[in-house]
Design a binder for these strands. Structure first.
Lengths: 124, 124
DNA sequence: CTAAGTGCAAAGAGTTTGCAACAAT
DNA sequence: ATTGTTGCAAACTCTTTGCACTTAG
């Protein structure tokens, strides 16, 4: 895999992200490093990273995908059904249990996505 | 809500489904009851059912949405990363714990989606 | 009757792809 | 030099919408 400007820029944007960026978010952030970068390259780069297991891809109910570095610990996503805001909920303790459950069915676990959909209690 | 042929047909298709049908799957099945039904009506009907809390909508990594009756018990989805096949994994015991976790963060839980991505052990 | 619901075709959103130009090795 | 990578524009897939027609209540 060649060390191109685009790949370095997207990788840096992923590494710096503390939220859950879409491809377009990553494009805007990566352009600080590589101003000529295009959206189609971002998609191609993300697909390649994903194929190599470097990133996780999530599709929440809003329809567009969000991306995060696979090296981050597995965690649950709590999603506000009104605003789409995503809150993280660490759940490291549960992962072993999920692995066991999957194995019971004859599967090797590759990713866990626990998503809780809710609404803030203080605004009905 | 008027009891139209389309709505009855989609509801019956959802009720009979033991898998995770897409809008197009539901169209094909519902046409047994209402042969003139169109895909746009299926989407409108599903949107209305969803707004009324009658169905749950999931978007897995494949990009298209799948639908199920909300009256079904919450369960986890174990998804084969190679084939896209969806296996169900009941988890009723865990729901209370998730509700508590969400409430700790000030949210009222509306839906739980636990998705395990794996691959069959017997084929690498 | 008449508002709600529908089919059709066109529009939207997000993502992917063909191709000629370009750049990392 | 050579092969992988890119930007652009067009294509694609899934979903939504505008509009005139239809139908349930």
């Amino acid at each position: 895999m060649r060390a191109t400007k685009g790949r370095q820029a997207v990788l840096a944007a992923l590494d710096e992200a503390s939220d859950h960026p879409t491809a377009e978010d990553l494009l805007m952030r990566a352009r600080k490093t590589d101003p000529a970068l295009s959206l189609s390259s971002v998609y191609r780069i993300l697909k390649e990273f994903h194929d190599r297991g470097m990133v996780r891809r999530h599709v929440f109910t809003q329809g567009r995908a969000v991306w995060e570095l696979a090296q981050r610990a597995l965690h649950a996503h709590l999603i506000d059904v009104h605003t789409g805001e995503i809150v993280e909920l660490p759940e490291a303790d549960l992962v072993r249990m999920y692995e066991a459950a999957a194995e019971t069915l004859g599967y090797r676990l590759r990713d866990v996505r626990l998503e809780l959909y809710g609404e803030r209690i203080d605004r009905g």
